[in-house]
Write a protein that binds this DNA or RNA. Sequence first.
DNA 1: CTGAAAGCGCTTACAG
DNA 2: CTGAAAGCGCTTACAG
Lengths: 341, 341
Amino acid sequence: MAVTISDVAKEAGVSISTVSKVLNNWTTISPATTERVRTVMARLNYTPNARAVSFARQNTRNIVYLTALSKNEAYRNPHMFDIMCGVYSQLAKCGYTLSLVDTSEDTYPCESVSRVISQKCADALIVHGSAITKQETADLILSSGFPHIIIGHPGFDSALCWIDTNHGLAGQYAAMHLINCDYTKAAFIGGRKTDVISNQRLKGFIGKMRDYGIRIAPECIGYTDSGTLESYQAAEKMLQLPPSKRPLAIVCENSCIAVGVSRAIHDCGLKVPDEIAFLTFDSFPYSGIIDPPPTIVDIDVYDMGAQAGDIILRKLKNPSLLVQSYTTLPMILQGKTTHPI
Amino acid sequence: MAVTISDVAKEAGVSISTVSKVLNNWTTISPATTERVRTVMARLNYTPNARAVSFARQNTRNIVYLTALSKNEAYRNPHMFDIMCGVYSQLAKCGYTLSLVDTSEDTYPCESVSRVISQKCADALIVHGSAITKQETADLILSSGFPHIIIGHPGFDSALCWIDTNHGLAGQYAAMHLINCDYTKAAFIGGRKTDVISNQRLKGFIGKMRDYGIRIAPECIGYTDSGTLESYQAAEKMLQLPPSKRPLAIVCENSCIAVGVSRAIHDCGLKVPDEIAFLTFDSFPYSGIIDPPPTIVDIDVYDMGAQAGDIILRKLKNPSLLVQSYTTLPMILQGKTTHPI
DNA sequence: CTGAAAGCGCTTACAG
DNA sequence: CTGAAAGCGCTTACAG
């Protein structure tokens, strides 16, 4: 059988209380005893039984990450997994474990959440935004008083704890970059008119440009299905505008759009970045095959995950902590499709 | 405080043993008692404390998934996460939980493995292939007798339990597809000469073609860095061969290569699939932007994960079970770059 | 500075 | 069919 705390106690000639205190670094144990117990633990190759510890302590040092884990999710939404890795990194540093719970197969919205809370198999809950859309779920979490953080603004007001990325700010970064490079005639090709993220980026972009006295003409704002073809056509149309109206820089709302835009530019025979510049949000998934390598407004979602991990650990110490904020700063990855500043 | 088994026992007027037996579906409890206890449990909203259960049972019903969880891993290797989702799906069905352990920050190879084993915070270990490269780690797992499965052939002989995908077989599938469509002059553009997967696919492809009496000429086998440019050039070179030697179908070892090949075909003005056909392995990451949508030899790694989950559950019941096999069948996703059969 | 003892909430032989 | 009791391996007031 495995070595237990009693074996160590017997070998070291002390009580199990003392071994336990050494284990937990109590300062009341004499250096000599500590030393002796440590030696025995090392010799017997003793590791505390995590099951017993968590039971005795009434906590698990485990955090549950609630999200959709269906087939192909990893290809559709790798960001979610990058966030998860960020969460993991912080938890592991503090000796916490991370376990996964899938929400995609729930028959009713609170199912997974209530199970995790009532089973006490975790001390806290990290919920990926896609998994919490209902007020009902929010109420459940709130009324249980269970430590939690939602990654992604819940979409409705509540006293839930959440963090999110600021897409409007990313739009402003895109604008600032163009302004710093002196591109005063600019265009924006976005996703569908109904796409929330696309609209936030567009709004941030237009707003910041206006702050600098630059107006984006209606014909320089395009909406697409984010497919290569529609993006190509949107860009082509803009590039064929009369010289006075033709944009000198195109902001692509995502890398799929950038693929189409880059082809249109290529087919129009324009030189990048001298005759036309462009940049894109998000390096994933397609920025790697765009030639020349584009300038990118990127968001470090791993870091957002790490922050979520930090916050949950702080909440465990101080349950009344309320965090509701946009945390992660966008960053510009300078490519060859805009002039360096 | 939370409702415990004693509360239920008191309310139902039975002993905690009886409640426990109802909980665990013992057949020795009378229907009447069972019914009464169940009613009380429902009324009090009782859920067993998972910590206490796992401690009393001496098992956790938790499985650890050991892998690299570093930043950007989700973009570089989404397959690993898809496998993980497959694993999860099977474990969850049987009431097991899945927790994550990162190996990317280990200072010595067995560190994470030995920690998991000695802490007893899991009943079994699923190790992603990338995380186990050393004989040393294999020895540790084997000598501990800890239930495990490695996803991906360990690369050395051992008594470890593992499953893997069969890339050679996928190569054969590609060959069969071309043979069925009557493409008797075919080419293969692969990754680097040192790339293991690329070579296995190539070998399977050539072997099966030979079985049907078709030899692939040396000038119809290309190696690249999997970049768009080199792939473009490799394809261009083949397409410029004299008509007697020019391939009628090109097999691309991955979707990055397919992007370059598809552009080369486009620039040569050849009609797909009438004048030239092509197919690619792996839908991820770039097959979505290739026009027309390519025929793909795809591998369902989610299913491989699900099988790993099944196997580990079987091993928990029968620890002597040894599984070493290639499990997942490739499948052909018919696109518009080859004639349908 | 150290130890005896209660307790965490279940499971499981064993007795009846 | 049901229950009393030991046990799982720790932690933590409390007493000394």
